[in-house]
Amino acid sequence: MSQKLMTRIGWVLSAIFGLFMLGASALPKLSGMPIADETMVSLGWQDSPVLLIGTLELVCTLLYLIPATSVLGAVLMMAILGGAMATQIRADMPLFSNILFSIYLGLFMWGGLWLRSARLRALFPFVQSR
């Protein structure tokens, strides 16, 4: 696969990840949608810092989408996803649909970044056997 094609696919995956995080996670929290509070309460977070979490998600997603800060954004986003996974485990949610969803998002995020960043591909090479 050519580097140009890998980069384009990486940007598509990164854009999908960014749109998901902004639209499905950060926006409901930042706009005060009742579903954000209801979801946090159902996970055992009474009086949760929904606005703070939404702000952190927004900042980390934007850092991820900016090429110069993309690795920092990805690392910080993994911290958020790790906290989400811990919350899902504590709430005794289903494994494949809820608990591992953070892993799925993380793989999607890092896959997009790996494809769009030649420096990251050099750092973590994927070697094909011939």
Rank of each mutant, 00 (worst) to 15 (best):
Q3A: 13
Q3I: 08
K4T: 15
K4V: 14
L5W: 14
L5R: 15
M6A: 13
T7I: 11
I9A: 15
I9T: 14
G10I: 02
W11N: 12
W11R: 09
V12I: 15
S14E: 00
S14Q: 01
A15Y: 03
I16T: 11
I16A: 14
G18C: 12
L19Q: 04
L19T: 05
L19C: 09
S25V: 13
A26E: 09
L27A: 14
K29I: 05
K29S: 03
S31P: 07
S31M: 13
G32S: 06
P34V: 02
D37W: 08
E38S: 10
E38K: 09
M40F: 15
V41K: 08
S42E: 15
W45T: 12
S48Q: 14
V50Y: 10
L52T: 12
L52V: 12
T55I: 13
L56F: 13
L58F: 15
C60M: 13
C60P: 06
C60G: 03
T61V: 09
T61I: 05
T61L: 06
L62I: 15
L63V: 05
Y64Q: 02
P67W: 02
P67C: 01
T69W: 07
L72S: 03
G73C: 01
A74I: 05
M77Q: 09
M78R: 02
A79N: 06
I80T: 10
L81Y: 07
L81M: 14
L81K: 07
G82H: 06
G82K: 07
G83K: 06
G83T: 06
G83L: 06
A84Q: 04
A84N: 04
A84S: 08
M85R: 04
A86T: 04
A86R: 07
T87A: 11
R90M: 10
R90S: 12
R90V: 08
D92E: 12
D92M: 09
D92N: 11
P94H: 00
P94K: 00
F96L: 09
F96R: 00
I99D: 00
L100V: 05
S102R: 04
I103A: 14
I103Y: 05
I103R: 04
G106P: 04
G106M: 04
G106Q: 03
L107Y: 08
M109A: 10
W110K: 02
G111M: 12
G112K: 02
W114G: 01
W114A: 01
L115V: 03
S117H: 01
S117M: 01
A118N: 09
L120A: 02
R121N: 03
A122S: 13
P125Q: 10
P125G: 09
F126E: 11
S129I: 14
R130Q: 15
R130G: 13
